[in-house]
Design a protein around this nucleic acid. Structure first.
Lengths: 356, 356
DNA sequence: CTGAAAGCGCTTACAG
DNA sequence: CTGAAAGCGCTTACAG
């Protein structure tokens, strides 16, 4: 189908030189006379010669490629960060003109098999993985395979590998403190399934912040749901049905927070006035929600870039544990956080009494 | 850094066979005795042998890899479709265990260079590109290089290559007709820069629908702006400042429509009541806008999958022009479209008079 | 400064 | 049914 590319051999023949000489000229070896170097480069340009990468990489024994394991199918709203991450990774790799391979596994088993195949077949020199589970088998596998890797996120015991993460614990302390300062003493937490380490971290932050403010953690105020807007909506409905509903909610993601807003509005309540909601991520979309979503914004523009740089450094021989970067999220106030509104703080018991 | 993978040579030595025999056994050649085939496969499994892909691909002369050219940095809201597309492409390729390479160029020049390098260096056997320009140099280049490719979107003269597109012309006819049926006779169009073919297609649909309904195209009602929510907001403000503002607006994307909603709300008007707005894309996020966004939804879940299948078929030798697929968008009514509301249809002239 | 040759790890006609 | 050998297109010591 595609036109046969010209090889080093025919370029050499064209120049009346040997392939070895041409190769060295092209690769800037010092022991080539300036004049033939010029000649060779010119001819290569003219003929559009490009070294075959499979051959080159086989020869030098380096795949010059890293792989990115896409997070498995999550809610369609949640994906925007993937494009940004790829962008950053690509930038980092392009400085050395390495390639970026993406892999999307269907199941956990599949994922493990993919990893093993990728590294054993010499296709990649390193891997980046996202959103680790609490006890992530991929990390163990990569360590066993002695394959350089970096993780976007981190697990509880993360001392011996490289990672880039945003401090979810800290973020939720900030969020809860902010709500307390607005007068809220019943703040609920809407979380994602706890096998994800990030879900656990954020819950930990919530718990410790509640306690540090001299309040008691009410387990009824902790709702774990599907990591989606629908999940957020379901969880919020549970909370609003409590005998004593919360006056504020922190959500593990902006997407879930959008579901929370929907549930709140559907009851005729006003987010930010009757009930405060704080999301997490800082998605730009939150500007357009109803009302605009207050959120803990994470500085994720550089994540891909940093992860790429780290991985390259590790492949070059750096100690992975030297490459660990913890960023902080910051409170981005829009319109869904507000002072405790006493008039509307009523229990469902009293509402029911009114109805009866 | 990474553990040295075991090669065919050492696997063969381990089995007391030659590499040729082992290779054929592994690749299921018929002329290998069943018993040694079993023996070989078992040993391969036990030792975790995986054929080195650079060597294999060099030998068979097939990169077994396709590349995806990421659209250049667009607004962060607009990116979600990238993840979906990659997912679909990955699925299609995985059936034959081909690899997916992603490339993100920084400039148009950079992009052309990338393409040339990718194909000339034998890194990819085919390429998929997104969002073609009206006269897209990438298409010409790929044709010159005789490199199999498919395009996500299409240009005006698209007879001789493979593409998958959603009919933007048709979609805007549908949108305008719908608004006309609601009583709107002054519908504006908010578009993106016209070098993008999709922007032109959608404008064409708008124009012809207006005319087909016996109305006159008012050039003041056509606003081209930056392809972002801010662009949509700016354009809408221009429209609302007209002596006789429109009563409805169709937008070239949901993202721009969100900006339109913001501009409308900021004037104390109600989208869907005072002014109708219809977006394009069908982003799930539109459920959460204020109010929920009516949109022309495109069935993009399968785009990646289809494009991947097409590309593979073309690489196998199919005629590219046999692979052209045009999907239709459908009207997804949420809350921003409504009947013409006479009470609020007032020109700015009258508003100004009130103020004076 | 350039050439001749070995090697990277596979696949695949060709013998036997 | 298996072995011996050539070849894929590069890179890189080693001679000279």
């Amino acid at each position: 189908m595609s036109a046969k590319p010209i090889s080093l051999k025919i370029l050499a023949a064209h120049l009346d030189l040997t392939v070895g000489t041409v190769s060295r000229a092209l690769n800037g070896y010092a022991d080539i006379s300036p004049v033939t170097r010029k000649r060779v480069k010119r001819a290569a340009d003219e003929l559009g010669y490009r070294a075959n990468q499979n051959a080159r990489r086989l020869s030098i024994g380096n795949p010059e490629t890293v792989g990115y394991l896409m997070p498995r199918v999550s809610s369609s709203i949640a994906q925007p960060f993937v494009a940004q991450l790829l962008q950053g990774l690509g930038e980092a790799l392009s400085k050395r003109s390495w390639d970026l391979l993406v892999v999307q596994p269907n199941s956990s088993k599949d994922e493990m098999a993919h990893i093993e195949r990728m590294v054993r077949s010499g296709r990649v020199g390193g891997l980046v993985i996202s959103r680790p589970l609490k006890n992530d088998p991929r990390i163990r596998l990569l360590q066993d395979l002695k394959c350089p890797f970096v993780v976007h996120g981190r697990t509880a015991s993360c001392a011996d590998y490289a990672w880039y993460d945003v401090d979810g614990d800290d973020a939720f302390v900030t969020a809860v403190n902010h709500l307390v300062s607005l007068g809220h003493s019943r703040t609920a937490f809407i979380g994602a399934p706890l096998q994800h380490q990030f879900a656990q971290d954020r819950l930990n932050g919530y718990r410790s912040a509640v306690q540090e403010n001299g309040l008691v953690v009410d387990e009824d105020l902790i709702q774990i749901a599907d990591f989606s807007d629908d999940g957020g909506e379901v969880a919020t409905n549970m909370l609003l049905d409590l005998p004593v509903p919360p006056t504020a909610i922190v959500c593990v993601s902006d997407t879930m927070a959008l579901g929370a807003l929907a549930a709140i509005r559907s009851r005729g309540l006003l987010p930010g006035v009757d009930i405060s909601v704080i999301g997490y991520d800082g998605l730009k979309f939150g500007i357009h929600s109803n009302p605009p979503l207050t959120t803990m914004a994470q500085p994720q523009a550089h994540a891909g870039r940093r992860l790429g740089d780290m991985l390259l450094a590790i492949i070059d021989g750096d100690d992975p544990s030297k490459h660990q970067e913890l960023q902080r999220a910051h409170l981005l106030r829009r319109k869904t956080d507000g002072p405790l509104h006493n008039a509307t703080v009523q229990t469902n018991v009293s509402i029911r009494e009114e109805i009866l």
